[in-house]
Design a protein around this nucleic acid. Structure first.
Length: 590
DNA sequence: GCCGTTTTCGGCCCGACTGTTTTCAGTCG
């Protein structure tokens, strides 16, 4: 076996070890970067190494290449094994304790022989940490807090799960008369599917109010712990250990702060490097000319006393760095800065570009609204068309339609079109991709439909070979227009099919079958990276809500977030086509 | 370890907050 994910994990572990043994910090950072690049690249590096065709990849140098190639050929790496053997596994685990870093873990290990999280907890209980340099009562208390959090299982929470909490916090801030403007930043603003913590940002009318706003933030109802409470920055835990940070800056610095707090960290690092190359320095206060920037005059919590080149709003900062505006969804250091330099940033899809819905359900299967109701709702959204795609016969729980019922349903859809004007109603089906990749209806019946979406619903724990073959069969069917939620994953709930995604994408490109971004939570399937890889390979993407009720048609905005994170432009999206274009596209395979 | 329209060597982003300290190291984002 062997995969990018396994290699990424290896490099991440090696970086951990390097930090612990006091290796040059930049080496560890370099390996962390290799790990991230491996996770995100569309290139199957193991397969490429085996065939001797591993292309140069930015961030992966000679040493890392050697490790990758050795691993691809032998299934292991001597460098990795040697390095990993030098530190007990439990010590590496201690790095996961929030608030504990490599220096302290190394100190505990070397000075007190503590080799696991449990051993640390015991040692604290027995007072064995006494006399350690730099470790006082408060630090010990914070270690116990960290251990408690770690054991409570601090996984990243789903975007939609934390959204109400964020809205509530913002509401509270905005209703504070001292606050001028409050926004959510961080991975929440970048619309990542999961969020590790939430970053809020605001400016206040009078700088004397800043500390008081932080204080009221840190003492509001529901606060379980205050991690930090300074003049411009507060950090709290709420809702069983979920971290929320608040940062306050003057209005004039809001743009630079929003940029800084939105991240990603990797995006920021690269931007700062770019600023440096241009004789400037970028921080959360603004963009400054380096020859004017005198660190000695910089007081913590207060803006630098010199005039910034830019900083009032984000656009001015990007523009001063000779970049086009980079949308928050792109800020992951996945090539957006290079694209900005080359003035080749994508024109990301927006809500206004969406002309129709191609995947929804009605009361015929497991939906809650009639054909007419769904069509009227789509029309009210300004759509030109909607495809009604109820479940097929094998989806028994979803009241899937047997062939005869489907025929009657098609007739009902045609009839509904007579009653509802101003929107085209297409007859479709979400047909099950069965375990072996065959479809749930005969070809002759599929041929009667305007739109066919084929989706996997059951047996989502197949191995990679079986799952991939299963999807390929459906992709290659001349009657299938779109593969619905291709992996079947549910964020934070189930993994879904372990597809060989490069293979699936290549087949879809070849067969001219579109892949879906299912906008429904917790699917968001395809995810951003796979959707981007697919679109780059020439595969059309359809952003579908899979709505089972009128309100869910509005989920399209979530699908758009994923699509924007995937760099998609309207020309790559099926349901950005006009009705006429769509009808032509639907006939291409047949 | 990685990288190069000023570099194949010498850099590598920057600031806030905390805790244990008298001037700073560690951690985080």
């Amino acid at each position: 076996m062997g995969s990018n994910a396994e290699l990424a994990e290896m490099f991440a572990r090696m970086a951990d070890v390097m930090q612990l043994v006091g290796e040059n910090a930049f080496k560890a950072i370099a390996f962390q970067r290799v790990s991230r690049v491996l996770e995100e690249t569309g290139i199957d590096v193991v397969a490429a190494s085996k065939s001797g065709e591993l292309p140069p990849i930015e961030g992966i140098g000679e040493s890392s290449r050697r490790i990758i190639v050795e691993y691809a050929q032998t299934g292991k790496s001597r460098d990795y094994e040697q390095l990993i053997a030098s530190v007990p596994a439990g010590v590496l685990e201690m790095l996961r304790i929030p608030g504990l870093g490599p220096k302290t873990v190394a100190l505990l290990w070397r000075e007190r022989g503590i080799e696991s999280v449990d051993a640390l907890e015991q040692a604290i209980g027995q007072g064995k940490l006494a006399g350690l340099k730099g470790v006082g009562a408060k630090k010990i208390a914070s270690m116990l807090d960290g251990i408690r959090l770690l054991k409570a299982g601090m996984q990243r929470r789903g975007f939609v799960v934390v959204a109400p909490l964020v809205e509530e916090m913002l509401e509270r801030l905005r209703s504070d008369a001292r606050v001028g403007q409050a926004e959510a930043a961080g991975s929440f603003r970048r619309r990542r599917e999961t969020v590790g913590d939430v970053d809020l940002l605001c400016w206040v009318h009078s700088s004397e109010d800043a500390q008081a706003v932080i204080e009221s933030f840190c003492t509001q109802n529901g606060v379980e712990k205050v991690n930090a409470s300074g003049r411009t920055k507060g950090s709290i835990l709420v809702d069983k250990g979920f971290q929320i940070d608040l940062r306050i800056v003057p209005k004039e610095n809001f743009g630079a702060a929003l940029l800084y707090f939105t991240g990603s960290k990797e995006h920021n690092v690269k931007l700062r490097g770019l600023a440096q190359e241009q004789g400037m320095t970028l921080n959360e206060w603004g963009l400054y000319r380096v020859d004017q920037y005198n660190k000695a005059e910089k007081k913590p919590g207060e803006p630098p006393t010199i005039k910034p080149v830019a900083g009032g709003d984000e656009k001015s900062v990007y523009s001063a760095l000779k970049l086009g505006y980079i949308e928050p969804e792109l800020r992951e250091d996945r090539g957006e800065i290079e694209a900005g330099i080359a003035q080749r940033l994508p024109r990301l899809v927006t809500r206004e570009d969406i002309r129709g819905e191609l995947h929804c359900h009605t009361t015929a299967s497991d939906g809650r609204a009639s054909i007419e109701q769904m069509a009227e709702a789509a029309k009210a959204m300004g759509y030109e068309y909607i495809a009604i795609t109820d479940h097929s016969v094998s989806s028994v729980i979803a009241n899937g339609l047997a062939p005869e019922r489907l025929k009657a349903h098609i007739a009902a859809i045609r009839k509904a079109q007579d009653r509802v004007k101003g929107i085209h109603i297409l007859a479709g089906s979400e047909v099950d991709i069965l375990i072996d990749g065959s479809l749930d209806y005969e070809d002759a019946l599929l041929a009667e439909l305007d739109v066919v979406i084929a989706s996997p619903h059951v047996s989502l724990k197949q191995d990679t070979a079986k799952a991939t073959d299963r999807l390929l069969r459906a992709i290659e069917s001349r009657y299938v227009h779109i593969i619905g939620h291709p992996t079947g994953r549910m964020i934070n709930q189930r993994e879904g099919l372990p597809l060989d995604m490069p293979k699936v994408i290549a087949a879809a490109a070849q067969a001219k079958t579109a892949l879906e971004i299912n906008a429904g939570w917790p699917r968001w399937d395809l995810n951003d990276l796979n959707a981007r890889a697919a679109a780059n390979a020439g595969v059309m993407i359809s952003i579908n809500t899979d709505a089972h009720a009128i309100e869910s048609l509005g989920d399209i905005v979530m699908g758009l977030w994923v699509a924007r994170r995937a760099w998609l432009t309207p020309t790559q999206i099926v349901n950005c086509m006009t009705y006429k274009q769509l009808m032509a596209w639907l006939k291409v395979k047949r």
